[in-house]
Design a binder for these strands. Structure first.
Length: 128
RNA sequence: GGAGUCGGCCGGGCGGCCGCGUCGGGCCCCACGAGGGCCCGUCGAGGAAAGUCCGGACUCCACAGGGCAGGGUGGUUGCCAACAGCAACCCGGGGUGACCCGCGGGACAGUGCCACAGAGAACAGACCGCCACCGGCGCGAGCCGGUGGUGAGGGUGAAACGGUGGUGUAAGAGACCACCAGCGUCCUGGGUGACCAGGACGGCUCGGUAAACCCCACCCGGAGCAAGGUCAAGAAGGUUCCGCCGGAGACGGCGGAGCUGCGCAGGUCGUCCGAGGGCUGCCCGCCCGAGACCUGCGGGUAGACCGCUGGAGCCCGUCGGCGACGGCGGGCCGAGAUGGAUGGUCGCCGCCCGCGGACCCGCGAGGGACCGUGGGCACAGGAUCCGGCUUACAGGCCGACUCCUCCG
RNA sequence: GGGGCUGUGGCGCAGCUGGUAGCGCAUCACACUGGCAGUGUGAGGGUCAGGGGUUCGAGUCCCCUCAGCUCCA
């Protein structure tokens, strides 16, 4: 998991981010972002039963966690994310997940345009 | 060389970069709470962690009471904390064999059911046939009808009331006889026992189904770690409907009403004759016991910690036992997360499969090794903990044994 | 962690105490019409979720497995 201070842990926090945050959806995942949160930069994950069995769900969660952790420092202070995995994420590669994650984050405006220093795959810049 | 049976085991390895959790130690920070940060060390998923089909430990229900109901188990003897598990053996069935399979008590305690077909289906049944007698027809063999005898023959069925041979008879039949099969009783021997072997006698033969009701023997109190406990906090509780505002919508915000949990107030019932409740359902018996219900008003917690991991534990040796397993001695510590860690990514190697080339051994079926290329590396992840069962699984290793074929 | 329910033609459902599986809609063919709709007549279509067992015989009884739904704490 993420270092404890960067996790979203309480059901109330999840509920607040999902309802009040802005949302951007892609084919493999969707991201809810709530700015101005007082808990620092945080992220939580929702991987439901439609994604697959226990093994598939955990694999997707771990990949997303590592991808989000690499981008956490680039987020504005006080940003809380909830990343929800879609069923297609079960068979996607990490590069594909990274592309959708970057696209969603940029659409929400929490991540600047095409950026350097990413070790993962050919991220296509689709600013929207 | 081929085909097969049983048992046991493994289930990717190494490295680079980045990253997470537990525990221990050190240093630093502080609104001092063993709170936070950094560094070092340590440990960090499985043979099924799975399905949740059983059994326990543990916790609470006062003790875990009696009967009925309900549920479970079902060859014997053992093993085990316990079990629907395991071992050995018995019986029945399958296989040439190694071996495998079996919910494997009781059908003279009772009740129910056995469709269709068939003459007849449970102390059965005369359709055809066979036989005798009577009547009619015919020269005759015989034919037709009636009365009676007959369960040996035909055909139906899953199943038709023993089998073979003979005596017997008008024809037949356990009607009678011999042998065999099966049933029951008794005796002898072996075995702890299920049971086995042998013998005698008996009536001559007795259907199946209890994974139908049921009977017998034995077992089972209920709930489950969200069990249960400690400590904080008093700001927003949940849900349905309505109104207003924002929004394209999804939805969000604010306000109001109803229901519900908690507190307060009032009323009724009750604290000698006991409200109400607990002990799974009912009855008995027992226990706790001062509150319970209604109305109105106000209007609340799945936050942290403990439980939480050292246990019927694992490994080695030895002894007892056919074995499951047990005794003794020595050694070891092997996850405790909580929106849920044990990973992400890259490289090398390994293994498997397909295609192409090509080598060695062998008469042969076939076996072994090499290069290139493409693809793949299963089933699946703790959530209180153990013992089993069942199911899923790429590929591989080891041991014992059986059958067939060939060579000596 | 505990319970419960369902699985049967393409779809929605019956099937009682075991006896050889039906109903409605849909499909196809024919007829009525110039044609469509509609109606009528007829036909086809089933591993009863999968496997094993009990029984002479299993959709039904028993055991295991696989899906899906749902309730409670």
């Amino acid at each position: 998991m993420l270092p404890r201070p960067h996790r979203v842990r309480r059901p109330d926090d999840f509920r607040r981010i999902l309802r009040r945050g802005r949302k951007a959806g892609r084919r493999l995942l969707s991201v809810h972002a709530l700015a101005g949160d007082d808990g620092g930069r945080r992220a939580g994950f929702v991987v439901g039963r439609s994604v697959g069995g226990s093994v598939e769900r955990h694999r997707v969660t771990r990949r997303l966690r590592h991808l989000v952790a690499a981008r956490l420092d680039a987020l504005p202070e006080g940003t809380a994310l909830v990343v929800r995995a879609h069923p297609a994420a079960a068979t996607a590669t990490s590069a594909a997940l990274a592309a959708d994650l970057d696209a969603a984050l940029r659409r929400l405006g929490v991540l600047p345009g095409p950026h350097a220093g990413e070790p993962v795959g050919p991220t296509v810049a689709r600013s929207g």
